[in-house]
């Protein structure tokens, strides 16, 4: 794992994408600080991070698109398979390297509240609390990017899908206000989601019975709930969209609350997508 980590770090420093990632993050947070902290003279640094989080839509896919797609394209994944290391070690090594790359611009950002505190009163505790949350949320998005990169050998495709998914996640709360909140609407949406889940299971396991079984059970469950008590499903879809949004949960930190459930949620997302990435890497040996 250490070997993979060291090698990845070295590769990142040779790669333009890393510098673009760092530069865009710093630029966006910098513009935010100018607008909020300097021009508007607001003493909360959290607002800056809330503003800056939009840039994740672009920079996370830029950073993560090559992480596994490139290995597959250059056939270097064969080397990784033949070395005495496990798929989990490969994914963890690569993921930690990505986090270290992400920490570099973030550690520069850590100085901003200190600088501003010299010129007025800044709530350092909430500022650093939200920087920590900003780091964890970014890490969750990076883990999603890693998983998307593991699905394809085309970097552009990985980046495109990554941008689409993160953008949808960013706007999902706003979109949720327009989607149907009736029970039947929720049922249809849930069935579609179950279908997507079934497709992913089938792609990862190549096991038709498992995919059909899981989708069938979940689908039947939804239908039974609908038939027994359809009021329970009212407003379910918008609620799910709000719950799944990584960005929405960050707002708690912006409002000055250190929300442990949000942190736990982010960590769950990280573990889930890293697990999927390991499975995706393992699966390629079975096709």
């Amino acid at each position: 794992m250490i070997a993979v980590l060291k090698h990845e770090l070295k590769t990142y420093f040779h790669s333009l994408a890393t510098y673009v990632f760092g530069a865009l993050l710093l630029a966006f947070v910098g513009i935010g600080s100018v607008l909020y902290n300097i021009q508007a003279a607001v003493s909360n640094f959290e607002f800056v991070l809330s503003f800056g989080s939009l840039i994740f839509v672009i920079i996370v896919p830029i950073l993560t698109m090559r992480v596994l797609a490139e290995e597959r394209k250059q056939k270097t994944d064969q080397l990784l398979y033949s070395l005495p290391i496990t798929a989990s070690q490969v994914i963890l090594g690569k993921y930690i390297a990505l986090l270290l790359i992400y920490l570099i611009p973030l550690s520069l950002i850590c100085f901003y509240p200190l600088i501003f505190s010299r010129f007025g009163e800044v709530y350092l505790l909430t500022a650093y609390g939200s920087i920590l949350a900003f780091f964890v949320m970014g890490s969750a998005l990076i883990s999603i990017g890693v998983f998307i990169s593991s699905l394809t050998e085309n970097q552009g495709f990985a980046a495109g899908i990554g941008i689409a998914i993160i953008l949808f996640n960013y706007y999902s709360v706003r979109i949720s206000e327009y989607v149907s909140s009736t029970a039947i609407g929720s049922v249809i949406a849930m069935l579609l989601l179950i279908l997507v889940l079934g497709t992913i299971i089938r792609y990862l396991t190549k096991n038709n019975y498992l995919a059909y079984g899981v989708s069938g059970l979940l689908g039947a469950g939804i239908l039974i709930v609908y038939l027994v008590d359809s009021t329970k499903l009212e407003g379910l879809l918008p609620a799910i969209m709000r719950k799944l949004s990584l960005f929405e949960r960050f707002n708690a930190f912006v409002n000055g609350v250190f929300d442990m459930t949000a942190i736990v949620y982010y960590l769950t997302v990280i573990v889930f997508f890293l697990f999927l990435s390991v499975q995706s890497l393992e699966k390629r040996r079975y096709n």
Partner: peptide, 27 residues
Amino acid sequence: IGYLPEQPPLYMTDTPLEYLKFVGEAK
């Protein structure tokens, strides 16, 4: 086992020395 696949699995941006160091450490 040491394995050389049909297409050598090389990281193009590395130098041979860096590459061998990585493989050695992974082994």
